[in-house]
């Protein structure tokens, strides 16, 4: 209680002119929400194309492959994905962050293709994206639509289908000891994604160029990390593999194992007048603006995947 009086005093203090220099740059008006410069030739389809396609379907019949996915809810989900791609949500406490991050690519560059893929997956129980065929097993198909207590993912059976299919189809060394899905595995190593697996997924699913730096345990050796990220962010989306326990603490412990645990999409990065770095990133269905010291930025980033939206040379 020793600070109660101090707080009251602070609350009653008059505002100091120009005193917000540090956090001023976090103000809404100061946020430079830019769109990465994108080669228009790689934008395969637009939002309106996806909506027209979904409208043309009208309704779909209940799928025998996905017994717990309601067809009306499924189509409503697809419309939401096309209309508000940045609301795409991986669910609280799941290990779906990598799958959610890469979904930014189809939802922004080819929403029609993504809608067609999902409808095909729903109706036929199998579908192809990029070079990959998805033929999920019974355990996956029966679970989609039943995942609960994960926030908005509860009402997104289409999102659950997509996440479960990705986690089932792609495997990395983290999945060695838990390769077969059992109920509740969305929170376990079954769903986790190491950096190599993440880049493999992007390369095989989307026929665009991906350049990756970093690893699961050793940070990328980049002399000027801020300059590198700023430069690359002008060319296209950047995915960061980072230690979220330091960026967004959930415990009051001082010593932490320095390993990456989370994938985000970096949307913007810029410096403030006092040398701090503002990062705008996307995860959990929302953009977040957070100010970090350059030292912390270097400490938390383990992997940088630079997605160049230029069609891969065949």
């Amino acid at each position: 209680m020793r600070n109660a009086l101090l707080i009251l005093l602070i609350m009653l203090l008059p505002p100091l002119a120009g005193s917000a220099m540090d956090n001023e740059s976090l103000d809404a008006s100061a946020v430079r929400m830019k769109t990465p410069s994108i080669d228009s030739s790689v934008v395969v389809s637009h939002q309106q194309d996806a909506l027209r396609y979904l409208d043309s379907l009208g309704t779909v019949e209940r799928s025998r492959f996905w017994p717990s996915v309601d067809p009306a809810q499924f189509l409503a989900n697809l419309r939401t994905f096309a209309l508000t791609p940045l609301r795409f949500y991986e669910g609280k406490g799941t290990n779906f962050c990598a799958y959610s991050a890469i979904t930014y690519i189809p939802l922004n560059y080819d929403p029609l293709g993504f809608s067609r893929f999902m409808v095909s997956l729903y109706e036929d129980g199998r579908a192809k994206m990029g070079k990959v065929w998805f033929t999920p097993g019974k355990a996956i198909r029966e679970e989609a639509g039943l995942i609960k207590y994960k926030g908005a993912l509860d009402i997104s059976p289409a999102g659950q289908m997509w996440f479960l299919c990705l986690a089932d189809r792609f495997k990395g060394y983290l999945n060695i000891f838990n390769r077969h899905f059992q109920k509740g595995d969305e929170n376990t190593l079954w769903a986790s994604t190491n950096f190599a697996k993440f880049n493999r997924m992007v390369r095989r699913l989307f026929l665009f160029e991906v350049h990756a730096r970093g690893s699961d345990l050793i940070r990328p050796w980049v002399h000027d990390l801020y300059g590198y990220l700023e430069q690359r962010s002008k060319e296209g989306p950047i995915f960061l593999y980072l230690n979220n326990r330091l960026l967004y603490k959930k415990k009051h412990v001082v010593t932490r194992l320095g390993i990456p645990t989370h994938y985000v999409l970096l949307l913007d990065i810029y410096k403030t007048s006092d040398g701090r770095v503002n990062i705008v990133y996307w995860d959990y269905g929302k953009k977040t603006l957070q100010q970090v010291p350059p030292r912390l930025l270097r400490k938390i980033i383990f992997g940088i995947s630079h997605f160049t939206p230029i069609a891969k040379k065949s």
């Binding site: 602070i10 005193s19 540090d22 956090n23 001023e24 977040t288 603006l289 957070q290």
Partner: peptide
């Protein structure tokens, strides 16, 4: 559209400036 994550020291004036900018009731906040 966006979530802002701030960290403040209470002996700095930034908290009050931010609360005023977002039109928070500063007394209720205190």
């Amino acid at each position: 559209s966006i979530k802002y994550i701030y960290a403040f020291r209470l002996n700095e004036p930034f908290l009050m400036d931010t609360l005023r900018r977002y039109h928070f009731n500063t007394k209720a906040f205190g």
